[in-house]
Design a protein around this nucleic acid. Structure first.
Lengths: 332, 332
DNA sequence: ATGAAAGCGCTAACAA
DNA sequence: TTGTTAGCGCTTTCAT
């Protein structure tokens, strides 16, 4: 593989001249540039990006860490990240955190391969996250709340969202409201549950632990949780699923048991994933400002990189999306 | 930022020893390892991955080039890629090709930042692709067919898929079958169209150019193309959309015009994206073996990297998925 | 078991 | 405008 040295030799110039020429510096004459370009071409020269990044000590790229590259990721969020990144002339790479400690994600987090990173991956531990952030390497986390010098938190107002969802159900005269929870270690889930509790309290509805079923944010777990609920002697008036995926699984379970949504039972989800409007019935849910979250994340990174002082905490608001899975309860 | 030199100095050993210790080589005594580890920890040392990759002249990572990170990418395909990559102890990064010649993708393709790449991005030109592939840097393309020493082609049998879709429609007594095409420069689209033509011919149905409408694989374009079709004086019996996204856009246009699918008109798509089974009516379509395509792609790369001689051409078969958007035509 | 030193491919300060 | 050279941070050969 040809190096810049070979190119310089063939062109009959010094390496530095070749470097300048290749980088189109104006220190070098047009004719030399052409000579170098010709030599590079004939050798099929490709610069080694690692070497130049090493020399320059920065990479101009930021990483987006996802727990699963193939996952149902919020495409709007990625869009936001991507737009701002490219607008700033930076590169963006996405890497997966599956594999835990020796995942690609951790490698990128710890080995100075990028200038900053955005984390949306529950399977990266808080510990790894905290110890990866360092001066000159800002980290934005979108799925947790960490207090550390080089970590910036962007959250969606999950409490308010949970409140909104629950209140919406209550306003349709539902009082026995089940909560199908995400995994215990999910920060988002805890906050959504908190919102649920708050709404119940504000409307003087007692919380009953029998209405709390644990899921893990997967469709399958929503299905199972719902089956469990059905197996109990009494059905709730409505179910609030901590995310849409679980709600979709739940819808399937309800259908299998001939429980009509929203006639027999109302359902609400959280996230407003793309599928939500296509399931039957179209799912009412809580929408998050995903594009904004993504673009804000990168924005924060650039500010930090530019040496500006920025807040460590941001909260974006949620919004109720009314579709057809919630209906007024007819007292029978 | 602490370097290995600092660590060595603090630990009171030579750089080489520090390196060995950090890499857990057995050339170094346990006590030294501990000393070094302690020094590294106290300095919050992070190795510079670029430097070690540079030295080693390989990166152990492969890139997946997508035209849009946020796109509705075949998650199964990515899954296949990911599984095989991690199983081989390599890292996988995804990068976007938006931005054309100075996109992240091109940077990774040309600057030896990865050991191999898989391309599924129509906006990377054939030219860039061909000139990026080189000895020691195999490229697998999933969306075109290129004849070059270091390029490997994996294709789905689009012709057969197009044939299957069209034949399915014909077998339900549809003879006026519209084809909503993808963009002209799409290789996949051309082949699907070829299959359409072949089926028409085999069943002695004349091809009418008025039934060919151009789209660009987006939902929006499917919507527009369908509106155009509706605006023509006569409706076809069925529409074959070159991909599911366009079919979904089409379904919306038909619904708005009170044209019932499949009663008034049958619809079939191509891809079998996740949404397909959720739209109304559930979309009949052609399924591609995406996971297999992804895993095969990486597999080929590893074989080439290992110096084995491998085929340059692979074709995977497609399959008809019958759902509810195609119905027997009642001759009126 | 440990250290000295060369060098991966590039950039940039400095000299000419 | 061009050339010489140091060095980015690391790995690894060779000597000790």
């Amino acid at each position: 593989m040809a190096t810049i040295k070979d190119v310089a030799k063939l062109a009959g110039v010094a390496v530095s001249t070749a470097s300048y020429a290749l980088n189109n510096s104006d220190k070098v004459s047009q004719t030399t540039k052409e000579k170098v370009a010709a030599a590079a071409k004939s050798l099929n020269y490709r610069k080694n990006g690692l070497a130049s990044d090493l020399k320059r000590t920065n990479t101009n790229t930021i990483a987006l860490i996802l727990s699963d590259l193939s996952g149902p990721y919020y495409s709007e969020l990625i869009q936001g990240v991507q737009d701002v990144t490219t607008a700033n002339g930076f590169d963006l790479i996405a890497c997966s955190s599956i594999g835990g400690a020796d995942s690609t994600a951790v490698k990128f987090l710890q080995e100075k391969r990028v200038d900053g990173a955005i984390i949306l991956a529950h399977n990266i531990s808080d510990e790894v996250t905290v110890q990866s952030a360092r001066k000159g390497f800002p980290l934005v986390v979108l799925d947790r709340n960490l207090d550390s010098s080089f970590i910036y938190n962007i959250e969606v107002d999950n409490i308010h969202g949970g409140y909104l969802a629950t209140e919406h159900l209550i306003q349709h005269d539902h009082s026995e409201i089940a909560y199908v929870s995400g995994p215990y270690n999910s920060h988002d889930n805890q906050l959504r549950f908190q919102g649920y509790l708050d709404a119940l309290k504000d409307y003087n509805i007692p919380y009953k632990s029998k209405w709390k079923i644990i899921g893990d944010f997967t469709r399958e777990s929503g299905y199972r949780a719902t089956k469990m609920l059905i197996a109990q002697r009494q059905l709730p008036h409505a179910i609030f699923y901590a995310n849409d995926e679980m709600a979709i699984g739940g819808l399937e379970a309800l259908r299998e048991n001939d429980i009509s949504v929203p006639n027999d039972l109302s359902v609400i989800g959280f996230d407003d994933i793309q599928l939500a409007e296509y399931v039957s019935p179209p799912l009412s849910t809580i929408k998050q400002p995903k594009y904004e979250a993504g673009s804000l994340a990168v924005h924060v990174i650039f500010q930090v990189l530019a040496g500006e002082k920025v807040d460590h905490q941001y909260t974006l608001s949620t919004e109720l999306v009314k579709r057809q899975s919630v209906m007024q309860r007819t007292i029978s």
